[in-house]
Design a protein around this nucleic acid. Structure first.
Lengths: 347, 347
DNA sequence: ATCGATGTCGGGAACGATTGCGTAAAAAAA
DNA sequence: TTTTTTTACGCAATCGTTCCCGACATCGAT
């Protein structure tokens, strides 16, 4: 089953012209007389002619499609970022091919391989929690494939990188908890390999320092899979709750960490924020409906997707190699809700 | 900026063979001697040769990519369905190009146009709430483009259609509310054009009939945009709450209707389930964390995506036109939680 | 009347891969 | 040895489009 499209040859045959003439007429070449142009243009419109993008790709050695690798599209942050990517890409005539690593290194390598074999013009990537070797990315980058990193960026390659202000977001979130009267603030961290983990941990530490709170490493808990697996959050929380000096607040530095923390509290009948308060990084759009409503640091996901796609297409379409790259940092926004209210300050 | 791939010509030149021989060697043709094959194969592996998919597409008149049109990828149901679609498509060597209508008819038409101009081999579609004219779909279908409908199916074309058992899901949900002691059960419906609206409304009505409850049309509320806009849910709920005989339970027949209903109750300080109970269609995976936890009918989204993609690829690869189509109906599952517990039955 | 300039258009190669057909050399059959 | 068959490979067309050349015709200038 297939459907045959109209080609330039069909037009040429019907109008008694050569394909070259038709092609030039459609492209509005100066070499073609006005009447021939009109003839071709009218007929082309009549039979709804569309140039075959595959033939064009072969000729121009570009596919007009870009690849995207994220950890999971069901994650609000990424689905919003993808919306931003597509809005820019489509407006510039590019297809977007989306793939997910599901936080799995092998799958990420496979996706990269798959995308390059599909001859994409460029790639946007936010690496998986497991990724510590970047050769699958840098190899292709060094061969000339334009790549832009976003969210979870890497050091391996020198290119544009688009991130939220993770340091400031974490700083603000932690400061918010401190100002609300919490003393022992723990942090649930993502995989240590990730840039966002380091940035957010640094923001957390700086906020504690600036408020003269001693840093206690027993309050740092890492979840290698970023909370994808409930059990690792459970384990991390068990570690914290067994401490003789328990934390009174949690800074959950990723989306899944935040929701699985809440799931943990619900299961263990731990009351938020009375027993323990929380603020987390999250782009969910129903944090207001959770019980209690969730205080969050929200990243400008849509905007990040737009900026990243824009830069990638700029790289793709640039005549000469770009060398003066920069990191684009967009502000994160903090939303204060019930989950981070101190019991004594509650009405 | 571009990166040059290795072609069959490069191999031919280096090994002193013709491109035909190289091609045949790579395809393991019987016409090529064993030693030549090994020579070519080894060298191809050495320089990491990958056939150019674009050249193949041009030759074979197929792009090995399929298009998907959904209303919104940030919607849990669709992101899960897309996961299912991609798992099948990628395993069979197909790309997936995802587009969103955002419940807008014009955008859907544009997406369809865009996809067909990108010469996809087939298309999966779940129409927008606004779509009542199907010519943008049937036109392409009649020209021979394989299309499979899923979730929100249409009558306009005779093809495979994959849906959840909306009738049974709605029937079970309504019955559940009745069994829990609720007497006046209202329904929040999606756009009347949608198949799912009709099916779910029918299931709801049948459950009432089977339980000898009189059907009251003042309890039917429609939200044309499926709850995408908060205000329409607000309006619908205001209508219901102004009734002299208010409903004591709501069956929210779509994801966004459900969450915006909860948002409405939170805003208006209406207690769920004491003042009004609710069960809704939803594929969110944090319904257990909401306040109160949400009773839902859950669709097998991932499975639906897999089945739909499988059928589409079957259509694409079929030698002769398929005529004996069928509707595939997968069971929906009901999860009973706090939001639908009757106050008198509460502990 | 001849020449160059200009305006219009067609021929054909190219992009990368596949494939039907032709053919030389080697092997087998006569 | 001659004829036939088999083996192993190359040539060239093809997919849809673009674009470099070359080929005319017309026209003004000399």
């Amino acid at each position: 089953m297939k459907f045959e499209a109209v080609t330039i040859k069909d037009i040429a045959k019907v109008l008694g012209l050569s394909t070259s003439t038709v092609s030039r007429a459609l492209r509005d070449s100066y070499e073609i007389s006005e009447e021939t142009k009109q003839l071709v243009l009218n007929y082309a419109k009549e039979i709804n002619y569309r140039p075959n993008p595959i033939a064009l790709s072969l000729k121009e050695k570009r596919s007009r499609s870009i690849g995207v690798i994220v950890s999971e599209i069901a994650n609000s942050f990424f689905s919003q970022a993808i919306n931003g990517i597509e809005s820019i890409a489509n407006s510039k005539g590019y297809n977007v091919i989306i793939t997910q690593s599901l936080e799995n290194y092998e799958r990420e390598v496979n996706n990269m391989q798959f995308l390059s074999s599909r001859s994409i013009d460029g790639c946007l990537i936010s690496v998986s929690t497991e990724t510590k070797d970047f050769s699958h990315i840098s190899d292709l980058y060094n061969k000339g494939l334009p790549i832009v990193c976003f969210d979870r960026i890497i050091d391996g390659i020198d290119t544009y990188k688009v991130i939220a202000d993770n340091f400031q977001g974490a700083y603000d979130a932690t400061t918010h908890l401190i100002k609300n009267g919490f003393k022992r603030i723990a942090i649930l961290s993502n995989s240590e390999y990730l840039s966002i983990t380091k940035e957010r941990l640094a923001g957390y530490k700086k906020a504690l320092e600036d408020n003269k709170i001693k840093i206690d490493e027993s309050l740092f808990q890492q979840c290698y899979h970023g909370g994808m697996i409930y059990e690792e959050v459970e384990q991390a929380m068990n570690n914290l709750m067994q401490l003789k000096h328990r934390p009174d607040a949690i800074f959950a530095s990723a989306d899944k960490l935040t929701t699985n923390f809440m799931r943990y509290c619900k299961t263990k009948k731990i009351h938020i924020p009375k027993d323990i308060a929380v603020i987390g990084f999250s782009n969910l759009d129903l944090t207001d409906l959770l019980s209690p409503s969730l205080s969050v640091v929200r990243q400008p996901a849509f905007e990040m997707g737009k900026v990243a796609a824009d830069l990638l297409i700029k790289m793709i379409e640039s005549k000469r190699p770009i060398t003066d790259f920069s990191n684009i940092v967009l502000p994160a926004q903090i939303f204060e809700r019930e989950s981070s209210v101190h019991s004594r300050t509650k009405k």
